[in-house]
Design a binder for these strands. Structure first.
Length: 444
RNA sequence: GUCCCCUUCGUCUAGUGGUCUAGGACAUCGCCCUCUCACGGCGGCAACAGGGAUUCGAAUUCCCUAGGGGACGCCA
């Protein structure tokens, strides 16, 4: 049986590192096992789902090079859910309930104050047909719960956590259909996983309790129960669950905007919380090769955006001109020499334009020793030759080392640090150098 | 409140009773390279949450305490 995994985001907001890590893990697992990666948009919550959000999700995935083999939307599957529901009704595994939200939350409060587990008491299960009719006559619409097999203890061998066992009497009968007829994720997800033939469910370990109920549901709909891998949730540096900090720089859209490299994200997210080390040389194939759930630890790793930025810097410094030139087609002077000069000095590709301006546009004038600047102009060779220029400058000024180079750098670039001076000067070229030196003299 | 999970250098981790004066990676610091930065090379700093118990011997087993995270939705 070939392996099939799914990534099932709900289009209710931006994808963030936590989500995308799950996508990456699923993708890696699929590729590692020559399986299929299924993308499913979980949009059963029609109130909160938006088309824009869905499109952004697809864009993020494409940007990261995550290609899906199949694509589904839960909103297209209502007929399947209805059919599954009929089946559950037929075998008596669902029942209608009539409590309001307020009543349920009151029950939970009472249970909490009594120190009793907050499990639904199945009061509606005791209702007679007449009572139900009466309630419905009053205009109260039923919602439907799955009747868990309370005597059962669900056990599964989790790929990350190992053996997990949860007694079903410790959790509430899950709601499958809301009073307005809308299907709830817990149910829709199981029906889809069965229909799509998902073999491995890889998700955050906040779903562990869900899994117990869902396995009980799987048993009523299929002979095949998928395997589960519940990975520890990422936390941010201050210890919070990253998903609770959306809209922050942790969203993929923002990272893309900040010039983060996709492969930096891959490297960090595919290795974080595992005993593998992130290494900017590693390709996606390398990461797939190295990955294993056995290498994943059980505690929540902290995600630090700085790790991604650092890797981005190293990855960029490693890129060839051909790999980046298409990004800068609008810059006429973006040449291979220019790229090679600056690539070690940039944090992200957006910094290219910063250096471009320093090389080829106007710079700030920084006051330096006028005599020396005058000498710079005096021996400026035409055609320009850096080695010759420096040799002569050294000669007539008697300067060397930092004394010699620092003022040159300041006069011709206006800033303290940057790429190798010889490369800079050569690229700036005779005319611009002459102008800059003259402008500096004038300012003096 | 109930249930579940977790706790080794700043960070991610190796470690499954002696091979641990606890290993690696990233970060950091120093040196080398060098006109600056980065890269690279070499080296340094740096951790078993606390307390008991078991044992000849515990990071490793057990108990307690503390701390952290998660679940308990007509969200996904």
């Amino acid at each position: 049986m070939s392996i099939r995994v799914r990534f099932a985001p709900s289009p209710t907001g931006l994808l963030h590192v936590g989500n995308i890590r799950i996508a990456i893990l699923n993708y890696i697992f699929a590729k590692k096992n020559s399986g299929k990666f299924v993308l499913r948009i979980d949009d059963t919550d029609t109130e909160r789902s938006t088309k824009e959000s869905e499109e952004l999700i697809l864009e993020d995935l494409r940007w990261l090079g995550i290609q899906w083999d199949e694509f589904y939307k839960q909103s297209n599957h209502f007929a399947k859910y209805a059919a599954a529901m009929d089946h559950l009704k037929k075998i008596g595994r669902v029942y209608a309930c009539y409590e309001t939200k307020e009543e349920l939350s009151l029950k939970r409060k009472i249970q909490a104050s009594q120190g009793v587990p907050p499990v639904y008491d199945r009061a509606s299960l005791q209702l007679t047909d007449e009572q139900k009719k009466e309630l419905e006559a009053k205009g109260i619409k039923p919602y439907w719960r799955f009747k868990l097999n309370q005597d059962d203890v669900v056990e599964w061998n989790d790929l990350v956590h190992g053996k997990i066992s949860i007694p079903l009497n410790s959790i509430s009968d899950p709601i499958l259909i809301k009073p307005d007829g809308a299907y709830v994720y817990t149910f829709a997800s199981v029906v889809d996983d069965v229909n799509i033939g998902i073999t491995h469910i890889i998700r955050g370990d906040d779903h562990i309790t869900n899994t117990a109920a869902q396995i009980d549901m799987f048993k009523t709909l299929s002979e095949n129960i998928p395997q589960f891998a519940h990975v520890p949730l990422l936390s941010s540096l201050d210890g919070q669950d990253v998903s609770k900090r959306t809209g922050s720089p942790l969203s993929i859209v923002n990272m893309r905007k900040d010039g983060i490299e996709p492969s930096a994200i891959w490297n960090v997210l595919a290795t974080l919380g595992t005993s593998n080390n992130a290494n900017y040389h590693d390709s996606v194939e390398d990461l797939i090769e190295k990955f294993s759930f056995e290498k994943m630890s059980l505690s929540s790793p902290k995600f630090n955006i700085e790790d991604v930025k650092l890797l981005t810097k190293k990855i960029i410094a490693d890129k060839s001109f051909d790999e980046v030139k298409s990004h800068f087609a609008d810059l006429p002077l973006f040449t291979e020499d220019f790229w090679n000069a600056i690539k070690g000095n940039i944090e992200s590709l957006s910094d290219v334009r910063y250096w471009y301006d320093i090389f080829f546009k106007d710079i700030a004038v920084v006051k330096e020793d006028a005599t020396f600047v005058q000498q710079m102009l005096q021996v400026l060779p035409s055609p320009f030759d850096f080695t010759q220029w420096i040799a002569e400058l050294k000669n007539i000024s008697g300067r060397k080392g930092r004394e010699l180079f620092h003022p040159i750098r300041m006069v011709i670039t206006g800033i303290e640090k940057g790429p190798e001076l010889g490369k800079i000067a050569t690229l700036i070229g005779y005319d611009r150098l002459k102008n800059r030196i003259e402008a500096n003299l004038k300012a003096n």
